[in-house]
Structures are given as C-alpha cells and as structure tokens.
Design a protein around this nucleic acid. Structure first.
Lengths: 315, 315
DNA sequence: ACAATGCGGACAGGAACTGACCGCTAGGCT
DNA sequence: AGCCTAGCGGTCAGTTCCTGTCCGCATTGT
C-alpha cells in the first residue's frame, strides 16, 4: 500500500470511530507503530487536528480543527447527504439554495451510479412534500447538471415543456440558476431563438451537457434574478394576502415564521403574505384560533367562505 | 510539498472545476507535467476515475467511478451539507434518519468552530418549519453528540427537562437513538436511577461525553424502537383520525402523500392518519375542497366546528 | 510500581519519487 | 496537409523520503 493510500485510509479510520488505540491502527494499516506515529504527524502537518491520549487506554482522535479534512464517506452516508441536500435545495430552504446546489452537484457528479440509484429510490419514498404543496418537483440530476453547465459555461441541450405547448428541444448557453419562491429557473441564451429566456426547471427534462464551451454574453438586466422577476411579472399573479386578526402579533408571528410578516394593529394584528397557493394562508387562519377579517385578496375571502360553509355542513 | 499533500490538492482541484488543462495543474502543483501524469495515474490506482481528453484544448476530469473519492469541501459547501442534513434528520425525512444523523455527526465533529457558528446562523434563519408544526426542535449538536456517544459506548452526562418537572442532571449509558414520528428519543441506562429510560431529545440540553467507556448492557426489549413504543403507549395518546370524504381516493392520496392512508369507500373515500397535532388533518380537509364527515376523534369534529364557525363569522 | 501507551531522536537500508529525455497518438487550427 | 498542443508511457540516474528498529522519556490507569 502506498503512502498516500495509507494516509487516506488512516483519515477514514479516524473518521469512523471516536478513539483508536495506536496499536490497532498500526495493525490495520500494516505498518509499525513508529510509522503510524509518523503518519499522524504528517496529518498534523497537513493542518488536521489529531488529539492523542497518552497512558494506558490512550489513543488517537480526529478533532475539529482549523480546516475541514477530506470527508471519507460510506455509501449510506453519501446517499443521506445527497438526499438531504436535494430536499434542502429543492425545498428551497431560504438562503442556502446556491450553496446546496453547488455541494449537491459536487457530490452527485462523483457518486457512483449505484449510489445515485439508491438516492433516487430513497428520494422517491421521501418526497411527498405533503398537502400544502402542488409540488413543482425538480429533479436533482437536472438541477446539478444545469448548475455545472452554468459554472463551466458549457453549451447545453434539453427538452422543454413550455406551458400548454408540446415539448420542444433547446440549445442554450446557460448563464445562471435562480431560485425564486419555491421554484428554480435557468437564465440562458437560446441559440435557436437568439434571445434570452428563463426556463422553469421542473419543465426541463433530459439535459445534456455537450462539452462545448462558449464565451458568456452580457445579460440585458441588472442580474439574473432581476431578469427572471421581469419575466414573471407578466405571468399569472401571486396573491398578496392581507388579513386582520384579533390576536397578539407575537403569538401569530411564531406560527407564521418566515412565511409572512406580522405587524401590530391596535388590539390585534395584521398578517401579510405573498403566496401562489391560497391553501397556505387558509391553514394559518385555521390554526390561529382567532377571529379575523380578510382584507385581500377577494379569492381568499371566497375560499374562507367556502371552507367555512363546508366545515359547518360536516357537523 | 509532500506527495500525499499534493495528491489531496490535486483531488481538490479536480473537484472544483470540470476540466483542467494538464499544464495548469502541473504549474499549480509545482511539479513537472510528467509527475502530474504519474499523480493522475496514482489516483486511478486508488480507484478514482479520471478522464483525460487528448489533443489541443484537452485536459483532465474527475468522473463518477466505482467509489466515492474523498470529498474536499469549501466552507460554504460544508455549511450547506450540514444544514441540509440537519433538516433532513430533524425534520424526519422517513427512511434516512439514521444515516443522516451518522453523516451529520461525521461532518459536524470535523467542522471547525467558525463553520459551526455559520451553520447555526443559517439554520436559525432557516428553521421556522411553518405553521403546521409545534416544532419539537432538536439541536443538531445534541443529536450528533448523542449519536456518537451511542456509537462509541461512551458514558454521557446531560440535563433533562422531564415533563412539568424541573431540570435534572443525568448520567447515562447511551444505547441507541430512535426516531419515531417527528421525534427523537435516546434509549439509555440511567446510572443514578439504575434502570432503562427513554429520553426525548428536544428535552435534552448540554450533553457532555465523558470519554469514559462502558460495556453495553442488554436491553429488556426486542429492540430500542420497541422499548420506546412501550413507553409511549402510556403517554398522552396521539389522535387516530378517521374521516369520510366525498371525493375520489386517488385524488386525495396525492394531496396527503405519505402522511396518511386513503382507501376507497363507495363513491368517496376514507382518510386515516395518526397525528399529534390536529391542525394537520384540518388543513388537509380545508384544501380537499370536498364535503366530509369526521368519524373520529371527537376533538377533530369540535375543531372543525370551531373553524367552520369562525370562518363563517369572518364573512 | 508496573504495564501500556504515546513521543521523538538516530541510523541504515531500501523503496519510491522526480525530472529529463524520448517517441508515440490524438485532436484542433491555419 | 502540416503544425501545434496535449496526453501517454518507457527509461534512467540522482535524490529524496520512507520504513523498521533501536533507544530513552513522559504520562496515565491499574
């Protein structure tokens, strides 16, 4: 076994258990204890913090240090990481989107096919995001393929199912991914239509990097996010919800969390949210336990009336 | 720079970009092109798949191969992974719990403090699980500390806030973590009470591994899961929800996902769920759009009536 | 006190690494 | 077609470094 290989094995061993007695390590690595000590020293030189406990029942331990050592993952751990990142990215946990995708693409592109299949299996059982979401599901592979293509300025082909239109084939120069609300968009220059477009990722299928690189063009907008938002303005509006409730603002705020803003208003409070699915505010109102008045939109008032009537009927 | 270090650097470089021209790599690593080729060969010997493109504009590329290479992560990527795993584990994405925790503890225990702080910051903005959940939030550090203590059979101390009682200090021999529903439990032998106990993780604080190891005892139950379930039976019951709806079963099923079971019933269907929070089924009923009858529990019927009345009042 | 464990210096033999040649193949570009 | 760049792999000599073995020392738990 070569030195580098042994170092990696050592790192791997140190990552699986908390303590390792020196003799056991040296036996596993098939080297003398002296060499083990030298290997540990080498690790320390590389910047990783290896604690050693002297005396009987002593041993070595890899601790958090100045920099993150190379992660050596078991298959299952890799799958768990991929699944976790997938849901984090797709579920749009605010703030981490970009990083998650970046990390996901790194993991995914290095994962052996068998693990990727495992991940798909787990994810398919896992997804079912629950009642609240019409689930614009983005495939993890699509997401990462596109992210990589953007990063590497690589010409891309894919099939796109535009709204109510049949599937068309596209050749684009990808620029940026944008996560907006719970959706992902790709901003790219469409080579056939010779114009900038934004594509919804849940409508993209079978993306294929061509390996051909290109020089990025300049986007006629402040940034990619702005470009996507411009495009969306013209699309079916989201609902601006505004409701007045007879309850303390702070109490409601803990329930609503970051999905809306709550402000004080006399005895009660005012809830404002921006949603594209009215089930969401309905749910908040149901669980609030307080009386309320819907100020906008009218659709929400209708919905509340409908639910109220239906619930009353059920009694 | 030593050979091992250079190999790690090379792996790291290959993980950040898709293509690397050979000359650039050899320059960065400060070795001759010949040595670079040898390094690449070494990587291949270690089992990693490195593609090479010949000719002008050629280069090297790390591809998915038979085994996952050591992941060399940037700070932000590590944070994203930690956050993703955290939500996956805590949010109890069915099926991956154990693995997620295992992976999370691996990452977390190697993460430099500064990154852990970053993670906490991101997670605190991120959490707000939304209105549907009373949020029995489990701290990631608690989770992983306990997981490691179980794995390493390490004596553990922590503070525990039993129901309605003040905080007490415990010394336990941890055996297993169990994820049940959306909660985490620790099954452990309590040294002071000299008996087996199960602890809810959201009530555990300030866990401290002592470094002292012990020989695991035998649990007087089939397995840890069974033990926890036995304990829970005697606790305040969850609600067994049963509702009859006037809508097609499959349509409802897609909404409910894996949170309940839907079965056909004449023209309509029957929904069954087990929940500890009644807001959840209320939400499903609201968004279903169909008429329904609550068969059990009575509390749900009451809740439906209350919401119905309140919604009607709001109009 | 003793045994087990980690630490680190010295040394000699041997293994492996490196850079410099070389000729070869493969893909783009002019 | 011809040239340039890039990767591939063989060989060789010089050098580095790695390893195992010896040693005495420090530290801890029994």
């Amino acid at each position: 076994m070569s030195t580098s290989e042994r170092m990696l094995r050592l790192l791997s061993l140190l990552q699986t258990h908390r303590y390792w007695p020196g003799p056991e390590l040296s036996e596993r690595l098939e080297v003398s204890p002296r060499t083990l000590r030298r290997d540990v020293d080498r690790l320390r030189d590389l910047g990783y913090t290896v604690d050693a406990v002297r005396g009987a029942a002593g041993g070595y331990q890899l601790r958090a240090g100045g920099s993150l050592p190379p992660l050596l993952l078991e298959d299952e751990e890799a799958v768990a990481i991929a699944v976790g990142l997938r849901t984090a990215a797709v579920g749009a946990v605010a703030g981490t989107d970009d990083r998650s995708v970046q990390a996901l693409s790194k993991v995914l592109s290095l994962m052996p096919p068998r693990l990727r299949r495992q991940m798909d299996a787990v994810a398919s059982q896992t997804d079912a995001p629950g009642p609240w979401e019409g689930a614009p599901v983005v495939d993890a592979v699509v997401l990462t393929t596109l992210a990589q293509a953007c990063r590497d300025s690589e010409l891309l082909r894919f099939d796109y199912a535009a709204r109510e239109a049949e599937v068309s084939h596209r050749r684009v120069e990808p620029l940026r991914l944008v996560s907006l609300g719970r959706r992902w968009y790709l901003v790219a220059w469409d080579r056939d239509r010779t114009d900038w477009r934004s594509f919804r990722l849940d409508r993209v299928s079978d993306p294929q990097p061509t390996g051909q690189r290109f020089r990025p063009r300049e986007l006629p907008a402040e940034d990619a996010l702005a470009f996507v938002q411009q495009g969306i303005r013209r699309m079916p509006q989201r609902h601006a919800v505004r409701v007045r409730l007879a309850m303390p603002a702070d109490q409601l705020a803990t329930q609503v969390g970051r999905w809306g803003t709550v402000s004080e208003d006399g005895d009660g409070c005012v809830l404002e949210m921006n949603v594209d699915d009215l089930d969401w505010p309905v749910m908040v109102l149901a669980s609030s336990g307080a009386d309320f008045v819907v100020e906008s939109p009218p659709e929400l008032a209708e919905k509340v009336a409908e639910v109220g009537a239906r619930f009353a009927r059920s009694g």
